[in-house]
């Protein structure tokens, strides 16, 4: 069953076409990595899926109801004047959930992302990785069917980046939301995704797809397997093809 789909969508901006024609159907519980060169329209595709933008042509099918789709942006995007708890609770409070219940659920969500004990801290008091986790807790608090991650680890150092990727994969089996994430990093895409969709340079179309088999979360040593290397090679090849397309 698909939770969201883009069907032959095209997005035109005044300066030219940004995306398409582009189609992508997202099945329940799958993890898709969107990989492509800068400016190929990955973020535009994400905004279409989030319902934050409408296509010029084509059709967008989304999970109905608010809280069904959640987004984690490139930056943590936290309100500086709110505590970690209040930031995580924001989607619930906007939906009219009472403050006490929202706070309790926010504390649980923060605990799930490994942030027990910093509920009262403000974003300015958190490290970049911790702030990103608050952002993740906020996205997960409504138990979304579709989680969109728009280059969520781009601003982090390599160690924090890998730790966070592992955490996302460790959290995923709880509710098994479908995840679409944008990345520039081919190895990260293979490590995290069950399906890697490679886009051409802008306006982005699909250059090819690579299915990554194997268990999720990944077993230790997955990055050193021949299968992993082969996938990375295949995707790099598709990217090169997409650049010249």
């Amino acid at each position: 069953m698909s939770v969201a789909a883009l069907t032959d969508v095209e997005v035109d901006y005044p300066r030219g076409r940004a995306l398409g024609p582009f189609s992508l159907a997202i099945e329940a519980g799958e993890i898709i990595a969107l990989v492509g060169p800068s400016g190929c329209g990955k973020s535009t595709a994400m905004r279409l899926l989030a319902g934050l933008e409408s296509p010029s042509r084509g059709q967008v099918t989304r999970a109905p109801g608010r809280g069904q789709t959640a987004v984690v942006f490139q930056a943590p995007t936290l309100a500086p004047w709110l505590s970690a708890r209040a930031n995580a609770a924001l989607p619930l409070e906007l939906a009219g959930v009472g403050q006490v219940e929202a706070a309790a659920r926010a504390d649980q969500a923060l605990e799930r992302v490994g942030l027990a004990g910093v509920e009262a801290a403000r974003p300015a008091q958190l490290s970049g990785g911790m702030a990103m986790r608050v952002s993740l807790a906020r996205a997960l608090i409504t138990d979304p069917k579709l989680l969109l991650l728009d280059e969520p680890f781009a601003a982090l150092d390599e160690i924090t980046r890998r730790a966070l990727a592992d955490d996302v994969l460790a959290l995923w089996p709880d509710a098994r939301p479908a995840i679409v994430f944008v990345t520039h990093n081919v190895e990260e895409a293979v490590y995290m995704a069950s399906r890697v969709v490679v886009m051409t340079r802008g306006p982005g179309r699909i250059a090819g797809e690579v299915a990554v088999n194997g268990p999720l979360p990944r077993p230790e040593g997955f990055r050193t397997t021949a299968q992993f290397r082969a996938h990375v090679e295949a995707i790099s090849g598709l990217l090169a093809k997409g650049m010249s397309a």
Partner: peptide, 19 residues
């Protein structure tokens, strides 16, 4: 991006103003 987040969760005008 915070504004987009409020869009995503369907915040009304008053919520947007106050929060």
């Amino acid at each position: 991006d915070l504004e987009r987040l409020f869009d995503l969760y369907g915040a009304n005008r008053l919520q947007r103003l106050l929060r």
